[in-house]
């Protein structure tokens, strides 16, 4: 059995000001390690907080509770996450997940 098939390759994009929390890099190619539980968007958010977020002390500009801060839009492969079950959505291989801030000034 190939281990790689269980880990997921995804792209996470942060636009419209959110990139300042991620070292001004918009596009991140990420490999999610294999876990017992399936990867959901909710888990991904916490993973991003622990692994991608550069400005840790400004975490509350990105997350609030276990979801994103109000005003941040999440899209998976150009599809609204509200249509996919929000944090419950199960991430598939090669998903392109976009986080867009609608808050002025990031």
């Amino acid at each position: 059995m190939d281990i790689c098939s269980k880990s997921l390759n995804i792209t996470a994009e942060f636009t419209s000001g959110l990139q300042i929390l991620f070292n001004n890099v918009k596009k991140h190619n990420v490999v999610l390690p294999e876990t017992d539980e399936p990867w959901t968007l909710g888990l991904l958010l916490i993973w991003i907080k622990d692994n991608l977020l550069v400005e840790k002390e400004k975490c509350d500009l990105f997350l609030k509770g276990n979801t994103v801060r109000p005003g941040i839009i999440v899209a998976v492969n150009d599809q609204d996450w509200e249509l996919l079950g929000n944090v419950k959505y199960q991430i598939k291989n090669n998903d392109n997940i976009t986080f867009i801030s609608t808050l002025h000034g990031g």
Partner: peptide, 25 residues
């Protein structure tokens, strides 16, 4: 709405740039 704009930009693959003000972060 802000959401409509965001998706318009996303679907048209429009790049945006950092535009700060004093309230940023």
């Amino acid at each position: 709405s802000a959401k409509e704009i965001s998706y318009y930009a996303l679907f048209n693959k429009l790049e945006d740039y950092v535009h700060s003000n004093f309230l940023t972060a």
